[in-house]
């Protein structure tokens, strides 16, 4: 039956596909970036609607927010050129359709008989020491994945610094934006801390909180209210690797002295996960800030 909820489903689905196509085939690159950010926001709305607020927060903060800023920064460097005009090609289209069909066939059984994994995760949740299943899975059952994600973020930062982007002139901040950022950044910091703290029991966690803090830092940096985030500063460097270092140390210690790789000793789960979350948040915030607003001048030899 075509009721109200179905209408919303279809509207969201169509909007996502249209925005995805529009972001690739926009008139010029600026429009493409705007479409990409809109796509991220609609995707976040979709995740909220599907009951996955953790994903929605990450999507909105990282995909729509920080990636958007990164794309705009890249755009400022290469200029607003037009994108390649759309020419339909038969072979790639057929290939895409085939892959899409294959994916649908693979995913269809999941809709019929749900996976047993959520049940197992929920049943073992009391052993993790947290109440939020997403945090439990990310930092306990699948802690290995989260550790590698931190490593990926660090490698991305080192890679982008290795490319030695040409320094761009910093825009003169407008007083209105400066005043607004003075008001907004304390709120962002508060909200970031709240997301981190609630991560144990409610949606939230290190990545979302880190993105919030980074957004605040970038805003301050763009307004010249924050001294430059310099790579030569040992605190910045220390914070950048702190998350991964702590996580790897705990992993090594549990493998050496405990029951195995990332198998937290009983009773310390909650404290260890909270410690990792706090340090990882600071680490993620520093890496994201450096990616977006790290100073370019010191890269010159």
């Amino acid at each position: 039956m075509m009721g109200g909820p179905w209408l919303f489903d279809i509207a969201l689905g169509v909007l996502l596909v249209v925005l995805a196509i529009a972001s690739i085939h926009a008139r010029n690159l600026y429009a493409g970036v705007v479409m990409f950010i809109s796509f991220g926001l609609v995707a976040a709305l979709t995740w909220t609607y599907l009951g996955a607020p953790d994903l929605a927060l990450a999507e909105a903060a990282i995909s729509a927010g920080l990636t958007g800023v990164l794309l705009f920064a890249a755009l400022a460097r290469i200029g607003n050129t037009g994108s390649t005009p759309f020419t339909p090609r038969r072979l790639p289209a057929l290939l895409c359709l085939a892959v899409a069909g294959l994916l649908m066939v693979t995913l269809w059984p999941l809709a019929r008989n749900p996976s047993v994994l959520p049940g197992m995760a929920m049943a073992n949740l009391p052993r993790t020491g947290v109440d939020n299943p997403v945090t439990g899975v990310l930092l306990n059952f699948r802690a290995w994945d989260t550790l590698l994600e931190l490593a990926v973020l660090l490698v991305a930062l080192l890679g982008s610094r290795g490319l030695r982007p040409t320094p761009e002139e910093e825009p003169v901040p407008w007083p209105l934006l400066t005043a607004w950022s003075r008001l907004l950044v304390p709120l962002l910091t508060l909200f970031g801390g709240y997301l981190l703290w609630r991560g144990g029991n409610w949606p939230g966690g290190a990545f979302q909180a880190g993105a919030m803090l980074a957004a605040g830092a970038v805003l301050l940096r763009l307004n010249g209210l924050l001294p430059e985030v310099a790579w030569r500063n040992p605190v910045v460097r220390g914070l950048t690797i702190a998350g991964l270092a702590l996580f790897a140390t705990i992993a090594a210690l549990t493998a050496w002295l405990g029951d195995g790789w990332l198998n937290y000793p009983p009773g310390t789960d909650n404290a260890l996960m909270m410690l990792i979350e706090i340090i990882a948040t600071l680490s993620i915030a520093t890496v994201l800030t450096l990616l977006v607003a790290g100073n370019k001048t010191e890269l010159e030899p």
Partner: peptide, 16 residues
């Protein structure tokens, strides 16, 4: 309040 304030600020910035 947040949306109203941020939309007013971004409107001003775009217009300027």
């Amino acid at each position: 309040l947040l949306v109203a304030a941020s939309s007013a600020v971004s409107c001003h910035l775009l217009a300027r």
